Amino acid sequence: MCSQKMPAAYRERATPFELPTPPESHGGSPVQIQDIIPEPVEDDSGNRIVSISTTFHPTADILPMRPDTIVLSSDGVFFYVHASVMLATSTNNWDGRMPSGGSRSRASEPCTSEGSKVVPCPEPAPVLNVVLHVVYGLSCESYKPTIDVLSAAVDAMVAYGIPPKDHIAPSTPLYALILAQAPTKPIAAYVLAASHDLYSLAVPVSSHLLSFPLPSLTDELTEKIGPLYLKRLFFLHLGRKEALRQLISAPPHPHPPTQECDFTEQKSLTRAWTLASAYLAWDMRPDLMGSEIEATFLPLGERLSCDLCKQSLVERVKHIVVQWSMVKRSI
């Protein structure tokens, strides 16, 4: 697919018969093809150049039949597609831009010299490229679309009557692409999933939001996320904090008294544990690492002279770390 800057690798030299030509006049319609299809540019050698998708081009073998429709992006990139495929995935004939049943919805609709319909769309080429890959059930991973492009593509799918829930599931290419963006763009991926009620996607994405500062959410983001998924995100953070608070509240179990260490001596470990847990609770985070728990409590053993107390401390810390790793990490 052509990028917006149209690097040379995505450009194709075109002879006159390759270029879309103006449609025939229908009843003196004032619509001109120049209003729909941009003029081709010329390179330094005087050759005419048009920008054509590297996946959806006139000779692509995606299907046995040749393409019969041209989708034109807002930045002048041509996508050669099949009307039957486009209409089969849309519930509103691509927002009314494509006629159903093979009939012309508007007499002035432009065509090429070979009769291919030209469907202009308001989205730029990177966004349309993702949408068309979804329509054909193809992966566009090689184009490395950003999360902003993916989000705009899902919004465009809704506009064109392509239900996101039907095409963004754990086994689909688009699901994998969005999820791959979650580690670096977690809030953007979560907004995308939440705004389209894609619960199966929101769940794994939310696990990357444990370190996200919820107070930094803007009004715009909260509005896009919506009350249901916002509540789930808040409850995830609050639930993990409360679970950790309960885990560290109980000090190590005392051991039976010995000549060297009775219950009175063991109270020093209990007091030290209480102070350490209060320190940890002060800066408690839902993304706290097990190593941080160990770094907080294990040094208490350096001040203990009783081996049984040391063993009890180590076992208690180990138990907390294991239990903490089992606490739910997603909505």
Score class of each variant (00 low, 15 high):
L304S: 12
E123W: 01
L300K: 01
E315R: 13
S74Q: 09
I187Y: 02
V322D: 10
E114P: 00
Y160K: 07
L298D: 07
S100A: 14
V321S: 05
H82P: 03
T15M: 09
Q181A: 14
P38E: 03
P164D: 08
L247R: 04
A9M: 10
S206G: 03
K328M: 05
D44C: 05
A107W: 09
R11K: 14
R66W: 06
E260R: 12
E123T: 03
I225P: 02
L280G: 11
R232L: 12
P110K: 12
S206E: 01
C111D: 10
T274E: 13
S103K: 14
I225S: 00
I52P: 01
S277V: 05
L308M: 11
S45N: 13
P299W: 10
Q311L: 15
Q181N: 09
P170A: 04
H253Y: 03
S142A: 14
R240P: 01
N93T: 02
F79E: 05
G28H: 10
P215H: 04
Y279S: 15
T59L: 05
V134C: 10
C309Q: 08
V118E: 11
Y136S: 05
P120H: 07
C306M: 11
I293C: 04
V131K: 04
P254K: 13
V127K: 05
K231S: 12
Q4S: 14
L298C: 04
V191T: 14
A152R: 13
M1Y: 07
I52H: 06
I36L: 07
P163N: 07
F263P: 00
L201E: 04
A153C: 10
R240N: 03
V77T: 15
T274D: 13
S216P: 00
H237V: 03
P64I: 07
V85N: 14
I225Y: 00
D219K: 11
G137H: 03
P213H: 06
E24M: 07
G28R: 08
L174F: 05
E39F: 08
V317F: 02
A159I: 14
R48A: 11
A152F: 00
Q246Y: 10
R329H: 04
A9K: 13
L269D: 03
V118T: 12
F212V: 08
V130A: 04
M326L: 14
K144A: 15
D197N: 14
D166L: 14
E220W: 02
V317P: 03
A107V: 09
S211L: 09
A276R: 12
C261M: 12
C309V: 03
